[in-house]
Simulated scan of single mutants.
Amino acid sequence: MRESAVLGVSGGMPIVERVKRFLQSPSGRRLTDQGRRMAADPRNRERARGMLTRFRRR
């Protein structure tokens, strides 16, 4: 069985194109906006920094 069939990825479109199309869709834009709002919150930034620090130590 092909790897693409196992992963559920269609063979006709490269993954970068699929991601680009999703980000341009209404739901992709909604998620992008939500991510920007979350990233603007100083508490979330500090939380992310702490997680990155812990991850890098391993």
Rank of each mutant, 00 (worst) to 15 (best):
M1W: 14
S4I: 04
S4V: 03
S4A: 06
S4M: 05
A5K: 11
A5I: 06
A5L: 12
V6E: 07
L7H: 05
L7N: 10
L7C: 06
G8I: 01
V9H: 00
S10G: 13
S10F: 13
G11M: 10
G11P: 00
G11K: 11
G12A: 14
G12Q: 14
M13L: 15
M13Y: 06
M13R: 14
P14Q: 03
I15E: 11
V16H: 08
V16A: 11
E17R: 06
E17K: 09
E17S: 13
E17V: 08
R18N: 03
R18L: 11
V19M: 09
V19L: 11
V19N: 04
V19S: 02
K20R: 15
K20I: 07
K20T: 12
R21E: 14
F22Y: 15
L23D: 03
S25R: 06
P26S: 07
P26K: 03
P26D: 03
P26Q: 06
G28A: 01
G28S: 02
R29E: 13
R29Q: 15
R30T: 06
R30H: 15
L31A: 10
Q34F: 12
Q34I: 03
G35C: 12
R36W: 03
R37V: 02
R37Y: 00
R37L: 08
R37P: 00
M38L: 15
M38Q: 13
M38C: 10
A39C: 11
A39T: 03
A40K: 13
D41I: 01
D41M: 06
P42L: 04
P42V: 07
R43I: 09
R43N: 09
N44A: 04
R45C: 00
E46S: 08
E46H: 08
E46F: 03
R47P: 00
R47V: 01
A48E: 07
R49L: 11
R49P: 00
G50E: 13
G50H: 07
M51I: 02
M51R: 08
M51E: 05
L52D: 09
T53C: 02
T53V: 13
T53S: 08
F55K: 10
F55Y: 13
R56C: 02
R57T: 08
R58C: 03
